[in-house]
């Protein structure tokens, strides 16, 4: 009897694991968000070698994102899935989990899996260059997206210039306040990530022109709303209303800072980058002055188009710049229903 109980427990445990497995791997098999097969269900991805013989070969693209655990990359991924579904492309998305080494092995996996082209949204501009090299050796085109990869071998790059975003928000804040002598605090992304490095470069470019603007403090909040909130709370404690403006390298952090400001009963203008849904609402409500919108969909679609061109042997532009767009209270309504 007791044995039976033990065995049952064991089976239950195994069953759970297997069930979870089945629950999520089967939808992936039949056409779902991750693997968007074209209308023809019969052409199952289970037989990849067979596809080589069929005349209408389905294009297979692998995409690795630095992470799939935040809104921005999810937006890119959703745009990519939608585009691929419409155009009969097989897409497999990988989550890089904030780690260049992981992305590198994912690229190797894609090569082993027989992808025709790779879309790389790198966690690190320098480190992921090794992945580009590996793919190049395998003769597979790589299109960088959103974050620059420091490699000559990159087939094409589609993105927005983070330096200009940094410049945009700093300049906008100065124009918004209408003076060139005030105190700011800067909230940064994860130290060493290229978006952080470039956005701060842009901010510093503008600050260099306005020597009277005083930087009270600068620290990282790792793109995180909650971290930015506690950071801001600390700053409010030490500087109080001496802070005249908050420059955040993304919206999440700007919103976190704003929350802390409101909790302290203050009203300090905040600005961020990305144009996420929450930020658009905040701008409409006047809680943020603006956000520099990064066109995730535009970038991703551009990247896939470039990849398809490259596979077909067509000429591809080395750089494709998708411009940032400043969301202000005036035009915010246009962005509300963007997603």
């Amino acid at each position: 009897m007791k044995h039976l109980k033990k065995t049952l427990t064991l089976f239950l445990a195994l069953f759970l694991v297997v069930a979870t497995f089945a629950a999520c791997s089967s939808p992936a098999q039949q056409a779902t968000p991750s693997e968007s097969s074209a209308p023809a269900e019969a052409n199952s991805p289970e037989a990849p070698s067979a596809s080589a013989d069929t005349p209408a070969k389905k294009l297979k693209i692998g995409a690795t994102y630095y992470s799939l655990q935040n809104e921005f990359t999810m937006r890119m991924d959703n745009a990519a899935k939608k585009y691929c579904q419409e155009n009969g492309i097989e897409l497999i998305s990988y989550d890089g989990n904030y780690d260049a080494a992981t992305q590198l092995s994912q690229i190797e996996t894609m090569i082993a899996d027989g992808c025709d082209a790779i879309i790389l949204n790198p966690h690190d501009a320098v480190a992921c260059a090794a992945g580009v090299e590996i793919a190049h050796q395998a003769g597979i085109p790589v299109v960088g997206v959103n974050t620059m990869v420091e490699s000559d071998l990159l087939t094409s790059y589609v993105g927005s210039q983070d330096v200009s975003a940094g410049e945009d928000i700093m300049q906008f804040m100065i124009d918004h306040l209408g003076k060139d002598e005030f105190n700011i605090v800067i909230i940064e992304g994860p130290m060493g990530q290229s978006a952080q490095l470039q956005r701060i470069e842009g901010i510093e470019n503008i600050l260099a022109k306005y020597p009277k603007i005083k930087e009270l403090a600068r620290n990282t909040a790792n793109w995180s709303r909650s971290e930015a909130m506690s950071l801001m709370e600390t700053w409010i404690n030490s500087f109080g209303s001496d802070i005249h403006a908050v420059i955040a390298e993304n919206d999440e952090m700007a919103l976190g800072a704003r929350q802390a400001i409101e909790d302290a009963g203050l009203d300090i203008p905040c600005i961020g980058i990305d144009g996420i849904t929450d930020a658009v609402t905040a701008i409409q409500e006047g809680r943020m002055i603006a956000s520099d919108f990064q066109n995730a969909e535009g970038q991703m679609v551009g990247a896939i188009e470039a990849a398809v061109k490259a596979v077909n042997g067509e000429q591809v532009e080395q750089f494709n710049w998708i411009p940032f767009e400043m969301i202000t209270p005036e035009n915010a309504v246009e962005y509300v229903n963007k997603y």
Partner: peptide, 15 residues
């Protein structure tokens, strides 16, 4: 890892 990603990256090994 540094040799593999052909660069030193601060986020290596996180988690």
């Amino acid at each position: 890892t540094s040799a593999r990603v052909t660069s030193g990256v601060t986020s290596t090994g996180d988690g």
